[in-house]
Write a protein that binds this DNA or RNA. Sequence first.
DNA 1: TGCGCTCTTTGCCCCAGCGCAAAGAGGCGC
DNA 2: GCGCCTCTTTGCGCTGGGGCAAAGAGCGCA
Lengths: 267, 267
Amino acid sequence: MSDAQAPARAAARHWNVSQRAALLATVRLFRELPEPLLHQLAAQFRPKLAERGAILFLEGEPADALNLLAAGRIKVVRETDDGREVILRVIGPGEIFGCAGGWGEPIYPATAVALTASVVLQLPAQTFQALLETQPAFARAVVQELGARLREAEARIRELQTERVERRLARALLRLAQKAGVATPEGIEITLPLTRQDLAEFAGTTLSTASRTLSTWDRAGIIAARRARVIVRQPAGLQALAEAAAPDTAAPTSGGPARRLPPTVRR
Amino acid sequence: MSDAQAPARAAARHWNVSQRAALLATVRLFRELPEPLLHQLAAQFRPKLAERGAILFLEGEPADALNLLAAGRIKVVRETDDGREVILRVIGPGEIFGCAGGWGEPIYPATAVALTASVVLQLPAQTFQALLETQPAFARAVVQELGARLREAEARIRELQTERVERRLARALLRLAQKAGVATPEGIEITLPLTRQDLAEFAGTTLSTASRTLSTWDRAGIIAARRARVIVRQPAGLQALAEAAAPDTAAPTSGGPARRLPPTVRR
DNA sequence: TGCGCTCTTTGCCCCAGCGCAAAGAGGCGC
DNA sequence: GCGCCTCTTTGCGCTGGGGCAAAGAGCGCA
């Protein structure tokens, strides 16, 4: 799985123009474009390999391309001057990222890092602009995509402002499970190499707290917390944690001291 | 200023189609449209009055229109089930809001409330869609607008995750001052009737903390904290608070206990 | 097979900031 | 001019969760 040859093979897989076109056809943004145009586009993508940990682009660099992930996993990150970082999105195959250039920004507002060896297809920003102006269906799709992302971002703002860490973490896991979950005998495995640190940066907390919380859930049998990997055993349990800070639902095993009251509510 | 007739007068001011067209021409989204189209559009807007506190639309309602604020002030809010709310945006004249319908969402994802008596011009979502498909320049503008907002939202996420309340509050004030600030002999007055509660909901904290913090700054002479109103006296002071949690820069007057060290940094 | 690196767990401490609630102030309407 | 209503201030208590650091795992690599 983390075979060193993987990226090369993956690249080969997407090198062929008509295969690339097939990939494009699965992407919401491009889906509605006419077949011939799709092929023409596919030919314009420049493939780019990235090994684990490689930086695809850096915050502040000129944003002259739109990036489509063909294979692998990417995290999109924003940094504070003092070095702390925040994970804005996690990208899987078939998703686009680093689109700033497409929507008229001169520089990337965030950094992209490969979580695993990855293959990225890059489309020149101008091509994107041209599409936008000539293909109404494309314009509509872009607007919808952006709208959806904006809504998501706003939802996250709400969460960060009103919800406790534990709940945010539970939600983060659920979201990740939905996005990159694969059923295994043990439960739903999140197929992303996310360290506790990453999880913390994604859910808005610290390494220590994330680790502590996951450990608790592990002991309670809700998840299996492995090294840079999490398996969700009881989605329902997580769900409960994510919704109400239900004082009891959580840990049938632990029973524990049991949070005495819905920690912070109302007004 | 909070004259009961104000909305009616304001409405009258924007009733006239060519005046509305003039307003449209100041809005980034519409600016690039050809003159005749602008007039045609202006005629399609339905004006709507709202008094202070009125709800323009509710989260969950069908989003069949795009809203343009002609006069007044609006806050866009999202609520938690337990009644807490978060202010997502504050809208001034010439800004659009409640655009969900435009970008393909069936329902409003947030609620809009008039902070002062306001006049809103509503454009049917279909018209918007039609523009999007027929006017490339419009499509480009929409994409840019959305991109900018998305970036802003992501910046806010970063702030919420990495910054302390005090700093977030300082930033919020600065942003508001920039957006709705008017120079007065006392300083830059933020011409928005925002209560401490509102400020808290905007900066991601609680009423108590917001109040306490503003009081401190008031005593230090950095701002003048009035009832539902804030005047920024020393923008530089706020700036300092917003950037580094500078232990000293803050309050030349108070001197105070002086935060002992940059509270939380690094890693 | 073992070394070394990265990731994880945890104990300990501490404090920023939330919750609550009661007592002031401004303003507005009558 | 008075009363009401909304907004604001503040004391008090408390705790969630951040910071730090040291001691363990797991894994890849040679």
